[in-house]
Deep mutational scan, measured.
Amino acid sequence: KRRTSFTPQALEILNAHFEKNTHPSGQEMTEIAEKLNYDREVVRVWFCNKRQALK
């Protein structure tokens, strides 16, 4: 499976959402994914990886 390359704009939006809520609901992740035109699973993994990076 290929790595997803996030655009700077997408990272800005993802980081803004992460600052508000580090554990978004499934519905929220779906909405973010649709807004950014990414697969929901990609957004889920991004949040998971971001949380791990802060440990």
Rank of each mutant, 00 (worst) to 15 (best):
R2W: 04
E28R: 07
W46G: 02
E19F: 05
E19A: 14
R51D: 03
I32M: 05
E41T: 10
P8Y: 02
T30H: 11
V42Y: 09
T4K: 09
K50I: 00
A33D: 02
K35H: 06
K35S: 11
A53T: 08
H23D: 13
G26H: 06
W46Y: 14
F6I: 15
K50N: 06
R40L: 14
K1G: 15
A33V: 05
K1Q: 15
V43W: 00
V43K: 00
V42F: 10
R44P: 03
D39H: 09
N37T: 05
E28V: 09
K50S: 06
T30Y: 05
Q27T: 13
P24Y: 01
E12V: 04
T22G: 13
E19C: 10
L36R: 00
T7M: 03
C48E: 15
I32Y: 14
I32Q: 04
R44A: 12
N49I: 06
L11N: 00
K1I: 15
A53M: 14
L54Q: 07
H23I: 07
R51V: 07
F18E: 01
N37L: 05
L54E: 08
H23Q: 12
A10E: 14
N21I: 04
I13C: 09
F6C: 08
K50Q: 09
A33T: 03
R40C: 10
Q27S: 10
L11D: 02
N15F: 02
E12S: 12
V45C: 06
I13E: 05
R40T: 12
Q27Y: 04
H17S: 10
F6R: 03
Q27V: 10
T4W: 04
V42R: 07
P24L: 03
T22M: 12
C48L: 15
E34R: 05
E12C: 05
T30N: 07
A10P: 00
D39G: 08
N15S: 07
K20S: 10
S25P: 04
N49V: 08
W46R: 01
S25T: 13
Q52H: 13
R51Q: 12
E41H: 05
T4G: 10
F47A: 01
C48I: 03
E31M: 14
Q27N: 09
E28D: 11
S25L: 06
N21S: 07
F6L: 15
E41D: 09
Q27F: 01
Q9T: 09
V45F: 05
W46V: 00
I13K: 07
N21D: 08
A10V: 06
N37Y: 15
L54S: 10
V45W: 11
K35V: 09
K50T: 06
E28F: 07
F18R: 01
R40I: 12
P8D: 14
T4A: 10
K1L: 03
N15R: 06
A33C: 06
